[in-house]
Protein backbone atom coordinates (compact mmCIF):
# COMPACT_ATOMS: atom_id res chain seq x y z
CA UNK A 1 0.00 0.00 0.00
CA UNK A 2 1.40 3.39 -0.89
CA UNK A 3 1.87 5.88 1.93
CA UNK A 4 0.13 8.64 0.02
CA UNK A 5 -3.62 8.73 -0.63
CA UNK A 6 -4.70 7.57 -4.07
CA UNK A 7 -5.86 11.03 -5.02
CA UNK A 8 -2.44 12.59 -4.42
CA UNK A 9 -0.88 12.23 -7.87
CA UNK A 10 -3.93 13.32 -9.92
CA UNK A 11 -4.56 16.23 -7.57
CA UNK A 12 -0.94 17.34 -7.84
CA UNK A 13 -1.01 17.07 -11.63
CA UNK A 14 -4.29 18.96 -12.08
CA UNK A 15 -2.97 21.53 -9.60
CA UNK A 16 0.10 22.13 -11.76
CA UNK A 17 -1.95 22.32 -14.97
CA UNK A 18 -4.42 24.71 -13.35
CA UNK A 19 -1.59 26.87 -12.01
CA UNK A 20 -0.25 27.25 -15.55
CA UNK A 21 -3.70 28.13 -16.86
CA UNK A 22 -4.26 30.60 -14.03
CA UNK A 23 -0.99 32.51 -14.47
CA UNK A 24 -2.25 34.90 -17.19
CA UNK A 25 -5.39 35.50 -15.11
CA UNK A 26 -3.32 36.29 -12.05
CA UNK A 27 -1.38 38.85 -14.07
CA UNK A 28 -4.72 40.23 -15.24
CA UNK A 29 -6.08 40.57 -11.71
CA UNK A 30 -2.88 42.03 -10.28
CA UNK A 31 -2.53 44.49 -13.17
CA UNK A 32 -6.12 45.67 -12.79
CA UNK A 33 -5.10 46.99 -9.36
CA UNK A 34 -2.03 48.81 -10.68
CA UNK A 35 -1.89 52.47 -11.65
CA UNK A 36 -2.32 52.62 -15.44
CA UNK A 37 1.29 53.66 -16.08
CA UNK A 38 2.72 50.71 -14.13
CA UNK A 39 0.95 47.93 -16.03
CA UNK A 40 3.37 47.56 -18.92
CA UNK A 41 6.34 48.69 -16.85
CA UNK A 42 7.28 45.34 -15.33
CA UNK A 43 7.40 42.70 -18.01
CA UNK A 44 11.04 41.81 -18.44
CA UNK A 45 13.41 40.68 -17.02
CA UNK A 46 11.65 38.23 -14.73
CA UNK A 47 11.20 39.78 -11.29
CA UNK A 48 8.63 39.56 -8.56
CA UNK A 49 7.25 42.88 -9.72
CA UNK A 50 5.54 41.11 -12.63
CA UNK A 51 3.11 39.56 -10.18
CA UNK A 52 3.56 41.70 -7.03
CA UNK A 53 2.45 45.28 -7.63
CA UNK A 54 4.69 48.04 -6.31
CA UNK A 55 1.72 50.37 -6.01
CA UNK A 56 -1.89 49.30 -5.53
CA UNK A 57 -4.95 51.31 -6.55
CA UNK A 58 -8.64 50.71 -7.09
CA UNK A 59 -8.78 53.72 -9.42
CA UNK A 60 -9.27 51.56 -12.54
CA UNK A 61 -12.44 50.10 -11.06
CA UNK A 62 -13.85 53.38 -9.81
CA UNK A 63 -13.19 55.12 -13.15
CA UNK A 64 -14.83 52.26 -14.99
CA UNK A 65 -17.94 52.40 -12.83
CA UNK A 66 -18.08 56.20 -13.19
CA UNK A 67 -18.02 55.75 -16.96
CA UNK A 68 -21.27 53.82 -16.75
CA UNK A 69 -19.86 50.30 -16.98
CA UNK A 70 -22.47 49.11 -14.49
CA UNK A 71 -25.27 49.61 -17.00
CA UNK A 72 -23.34 47.68 -19.66
CA UNK A 73 -22.71 44.83 -17.24
CA UNK A 74 -26.38 44.76 -16.32
CA UNK A 75 -27.30 44.52 -20.02
CA UNK A 76 -24.81 41.73 -20.65
CA UNK A 77 -26.01 39.81 -17.59
CA UNK A 78 -29.66 40.28 -18.50
CA UNK A 79 -29.15 39.27 -22.14
CA UNK A 80 -26.93 36.30 -21.31
CA UNK A 81 -29.10 34.87 -18.54
CA UNK A 82 -32.32 35.58 -20.42
CA UNK A 83 -30.91 33.70 -23.40
CA UNK A 84 -29.78 30.81 -21.19
CA UNK A 85 -33.23 30.54 -19.60
CA UNK A 86 -35.15 30.53 -22.89
CA UNK A 87 -32.43 28.69 -24.78
CA UNK A 88 -32.15 25.77 -22.38
CA UNK A 89 -35.86 25.15 -22.73
CA UNK A 90 -36.16 25.27 -26.51
CA UNK A 91 -32.82 23.65 -27.33
CA UNK A 92 -33.42 20.73 -24.99
CA UNK A 93 -36.90 20.29 -26.48
CA UNK A 94 -35.39 20.13 -29.96
CA UNK A 95 -32.71 17.73 -28.74
CA UNK A 96 -35.41 15.53 -27.19
CA UNK A 97 -37.25 15.34 -30.52
CA UNK A 98 -33.99 14.49 -32.29
CA UNK A 99 -33.07 11.70 -29.89
CA UNK A 100 -36.23 10.18 -28.45
CA UNK A 101 -38.92 10.57 -31.09
CA UNK A 102 -38.70 8.76 -34.39
CA UNK A 103 -40.11 10.69 -37.29
CA UNK A 104 -39.45 10.73 -41.04
CA UNK A 105 -36.37 12.67 -42.23
CA UNK A 106 -35.00 12.96 -38.71
CA UNK A 107 -31.48 12.61 -40.06
CA UNK A 108 -32.07 15.48 -42.45
CA UNK A 109 -33.43 17.70 -39.68
CA UNK A 110 -30.40 16.91 -37.57
CA UNK A 111 -28.13 17.73 -40.51
CA UNK A 112 -29.80 21.15 -40.74
CA UNK A 113 -29.03 21.71 -37.04
CA UNK A 114 -25.39 20.87 -37.72
CA UNK A 115 -25.29 23.30 -40.66
CA UNK A 116 -26.58 26.14 -38.45
CA UNK A 117 -23.52 26.00 -36.24
CA UNK A 118 -21.17 25.84 -39.22
CA UNK A 119 -22.40 29.23 -40.45
CA UNK A 120 -20.02 31.98 -39.34
CA UNK A 121 -22.29 34.42 -37.55
CA UNK A 122 -20.07 37.46 -38.25
CA UNK A 123 -20.34 36.75 -41.98
CA UNK A 124 -24.14 37.01 -41.93
CA UNK A 125 -24.23 39.81 -39.36
CA UNK A 126 -24.37 42.72 -41.80
CA UNK A 127 -27.34 41.55 -43.91
CA UNK A 128 -29.14 40.27 -40.81
CA UNK A 129 -28.65 43.60 -39.02
CA UNK A 130 -30.06 45.34 -42.11
CA UNK A 131 -33.22 43.25 -41.82
CA UNK A 132 -33.49 43.94 -38.09
CA UNK A 133 -33.20 47.69 -38.71
CA UNK A 134 -35.77 47.57 -41.50
CA UNK A 135 -38.20 45.94 -39.10
CA UNK A 136 -37.44 48.71 -36.58
CA UNK A 137 -36.30 46.10 -34.10
CA UNK A 138 -32.92 47.71 -33.51
CA UNK A 139 -32.22 49.05 -30.03
CA UNK A 140 -34.17 46.33 -28.25
CA UNK A 141 -33.34 43.40 -26.04
CA UNK A 142 -35.20 41.21 -28.54
CA UNK A 143 -32.67 42.08 -31.24
CA UNK A 144 -29.77 41.50 -28.87
CA UNK A 145 -31.04 38.19 -27.55
CA UNK A 146 -32.53 36.83 -30.78
CA UNK A 147 -29.49 35.20 -32.38
CA UNK A 148 -28.29 33.65 -29.12
CA UNK A 149 -31.31 31.66 -27.94
CA UNK A 150 -31.53 28.79 -30.40
CA UNK A 151 -28.08 27.27 -30.57
CA UNK A 152 -27.06 24.39 -32.83
CA UNK A 153 -24.15 23.42 -30.57
CA UNK A 154 -26.44 23.16 -27.56
CA UNK A 155 -28.97 21.03 -29.47
CA UNK A 156 -26.20 18.76 -30.79
CA UNK A 157 -24.60 18.37 -27.37
CA UNK A 158 -27.88 17.63 -25.57
CA UNK A 159 -28.88 15.17 -28.25
CA UNK A 160 -25.64 13.25 -27.73
CA UNK A 161 -26.38 12.92 -24.01
CA UNK A 162 -30.09 12.22 -24.42
CA UNK A 163 -29.22 9.29 -26.71
CA UNK A 164 -27.44 7.67 -23.75
CA UNK A 165 -30.49 7.68 -21.53
CA UNK A 166 -31.65 4.07 -21.21
CA UNK A 167 -34.58 3.55 -23.56
CA UNK A 168 -36.29 1.24 -21.05
CA UNK A 169 -37.22 4.36 -19.10
CA UNK A 170 -38.89 5.87 -22.12
CA UNK A 171 -40.74 2.72 -23.08
CA UNK A 172 -41.96 2.03 -19.56
CA UNK A 173 -43.33 5.55 -19.30
CA UNK A 174 -45.07 5.27 -22.68
CA UNK A 175 -46.71 2.03 -21.61
CA UNK A 176 -48.00 3.84 -18.50
CA UNK A 177 -49.50 6.45 -20.79
CA UNK A 178 -47.21 9.31 -19.77
CA UNK A 179 -47.24 12.14 -22.31
CA UNK A 180 -44.15 12.95 -24.34
CA UNK A 181 -43.81 16.33 -22.65
CA UNK A 182 -43.93 14.67 -19.24
CA UNK A 183 -41.25 12.19 -20.32
CA UNK A 184 -39.10 15.08 -21.54
CA UNK A 185 -39.69 17.17 -18.44
CA UNK A 186 -39.74 14.50 -15.71
CA UNK A 187 -37.19 12.00 -17.05
CA UNK A 188 -34.83 13.48 -19.64
CA UNK A 189 -34.21 16.92 -18.10
CA UNK A 190 -33.61 15.71 -14.50
CA UNK A 191 -31.26 12.97 -15.74
CA UNK A 192 -29.18 15.48 -17.71
CA UNK A 193 -28.08 18.03 -15.14
CA UNK A 194 -24.43 18.05 -16.19
CA UNK A 195 -25.23 18.33 -19.92
CA UNK A 196 -27.81 21.03 -19.16
CA UNK A 197 -25.18 23.02 -17.28
CA UNK A 198 -22.88 22.52 -20.28
CA UNK A 199 -25.58 23.68 -22.70
CA UNK A 200 -26.26 26.67 -20.47
CA UNK A 201 -22.58 27.60 -20.64
CA UNK A 202 -22.60 27.28 -24.46
CA UNK A 203 -25.55 29.66 -24.72
CA UNK A 204 -24.13 31.97 -22.08
CA UNK A 205 -20.76 32.33 -23.81
CA UNK A 206 -22.28 33.23 -27.16
CA UNK A 207 -23.90 36.26 -25.54
CA UNK A 208 -21.15 37.05 -23.05
CA UNK A 209 -18.59 37.30 -25.87
CA UNK A 210 -20.98 39.01 -28.33
CA UNK A 211 -19.43 42.12 -29.81
CA UNK A 212 -20.09 42.74 -33.49
CA UNK A 213 -23.81 41.99 -33.37
CA UNK A 214 -24.59 44.44 -30.52
CA UNK A 215 -22.59 47.10 -32.38
CA UNK A 216 -24.66 46.54 -35.51
CA UNK A 217 -28.12 46.58 -33.93
CA UNK A 218 -27.84 49.14 -31.13
CA UNK A 219 -26.76 52.76 -31.03
CA UNK A 220 -27.70 53.98 -27.59
CA UNK A 221 -25.94 53.56 -24.29
CA UNK A 222 -29.18 52.18 -22.91
CA UNK A 223 -28.49 48.92 -24.77
CA UNK A 224 -24.70 48.95 -24.63
CA UNK A 225 -23.15 45.58 -23.68
CA UNK A 226 -19.99 45.10 -21.65
CA UNK A 227 -17.52 44.05 -24.38
CA UNK A 228 -18.57 47.07 -26.45
CA UNK A 229 -18.15 49.36 -23.44
CA UNK A 230 -14.62 48.00 -23.00
CA UNK A 231 -13.82 48.49 -26.70
CA UNK A 232 -14.78 52.15 -26.36
CA UNK A 233 -11.81 52.59 -24.05
CA UNK A 234 -9.59 52.09 -27.10
CA UNK A 235 -8.96 55.50 -28.61
CA UNK A 236 -7.28 56.50 -31.82
CA UNK A 237 -3.83 56.71 -30.28
CA UNK A 238 -4.17 55.18 -26.88
CA UNK A 239 -6.23 52.89 -24.78
CA UNK A 240 -6.95 52.84 -21.10
CA UNK A 241 -5.39 49.50 -20.32
CA UNK A 242 -6.09 49.78 -16.59
CA UNK A 243 -9.82 50.17 -17.05
CA UNK A 244 -9.91 47.45 -19.72
CA UNK A 245 -8.23 44.95 -17.41
CA UNK A 246 -10.47 45.96 -14.51
CA UNK A 247 -13.47 45.37 -16.78
CA UNK A 248 -12.14 41.97 -17.79
CA UNK A 249 -11.75 41.00 -14.13
CA UNK A 250 -15.39 41.89 -13.47
CA UNK A 251 -16.53 40.05 -16.59
CA UNK A 252 -14.70 36.89 -15.50
CA UNK A 253 -15.88 37.16 -11.91
CA UNK A 254 -19.62 37.26 -12.60
CA UNK A 255 -19.87 33.92 -14.45
CA UNK A 256 -17.44 32.37 -11.98
CA UNK A 257 -19.77 33.27 -9.12
CA UNK A 258 -22.69 31.70 -10.97
CA UNK A 259 -20.84 28.55 -12.03
CA UNK A 260 -19.28 27.88 -8.63
CA UNK A 261 -22.50 26.70 -6.95
CA UNK A 262 -23.29 24.60 -10.05
CA UNK A 263 -19.97 22.77 -9.93
CA UNK A 264 -21.44 19.76 -8.12
CA UNK A 265 -23.42 18.97 -11.27
CA UNK A 266 -20.21 18.68 -13.29
CA UNK A 267 -19.36 15.54 -11.39
CA UNK A 268 -22.83 14.07 -11.20
CA UNK A 269 -23.05 10.84 -13.12
CA UNK A 270 -25.94 8.90 -14.49
CA UNK A 271 -24.58 5.99 -12.52
CA UNK A 272 -25.06 8.04 -9.38
CA UNK A 273 -28.71 8.76 -10.06
CA UNK A 274 -29.78 5.19 -9.57
CA UNK A 275 -30.54 4.65 -13.20
CA UNK A 276 -28.98 1.68 -14.78
Amino acid sequence: MPALPKSFVPTLLIGIVTAIFMTPLMWLVVSAFRPEGDILGHLSPLTWEIIVPARVTTENFTLLIENGFGRAVFNSVFIAFGSVFLGLLINSMAAFALSAIEFPRRGLVFAVVVVTFLIPFEAIGIPLAGTVRQLNLDNSYAALMGPGIANGFAIFMLRQFFLSIPKELFEAARVDGVSLFQIYWRIYVPLSKAPMVGAGIIIFLFQWQAYMWPLLVTNTREYEVAPVALAKLIGQFDFDLGQMLAGAVLLALIPALVILPLQRYFTQSIAGTGVK
Binding site: K6, S7, V9, P10, T11, L13, I14, G15, V17, T18, F21, M22, P24, L25, L28, I201, L205, W208, Q209, Y211, A226, P227, L230, A231, M244, L245, G247, A248, L251, A252, P255, A256, I259, L260, Q263, R264, F266, T267
Partner: peptide
Protein backbone atom coordinates in the same frame (compact mmCIF):
# COMPACT_ATOMS: atom_id res chain seq x y z
CA UNK B 1 -10.09 10.00 -11.86
CA UNK B 2 -9.26 10.81 -8.35
CA UNK B 3 -8.34 14.48 -8.04
CA UNK B 4 -9.74 16.00 -4.87
CA UNK B 5 -12.23 18.88 -5.30
CA UNK B 6 -13.02 18.07 -8.95
CA UNK B 7 -15.65 20.82 -9.23
CA UNK B 8 -13.17 23.46 -8.16
CA UNK B 9 -10.57 22.48 -10.79
CA UNK B 10 -13.25 22.38 -13.46
CA UNK B 11 -14.50 25.84 -12.51
CA UNK B 12 -11.03 27.39 -12.40
CA UNK B 13 -10.06 25.99 -15.78
CA UNK B 14 -13.29 27.31 -17.25
CA UNK B 15 -12.35 30.89 -16.36
CA UNK B 16 -10.20 31.73 -19.42
CA UNK B 17 -13.20 31.27 -21.72
CA UNK B 18 -15.31 33.91 -19.95
CA UNK B 19 -12.66 36.64 -20.30
CA UNK B 20 -13.57 38.80 -23.33
CA UNK B 21 -11.52 37.52 -26.27
CA UNK B 22 -10.20 41.00 -26.98
CA UNK B 23 -8.66 41.09 -23.50
Amino acid sequence: DGAKKPGMWQTLNLLPVVVPLAI
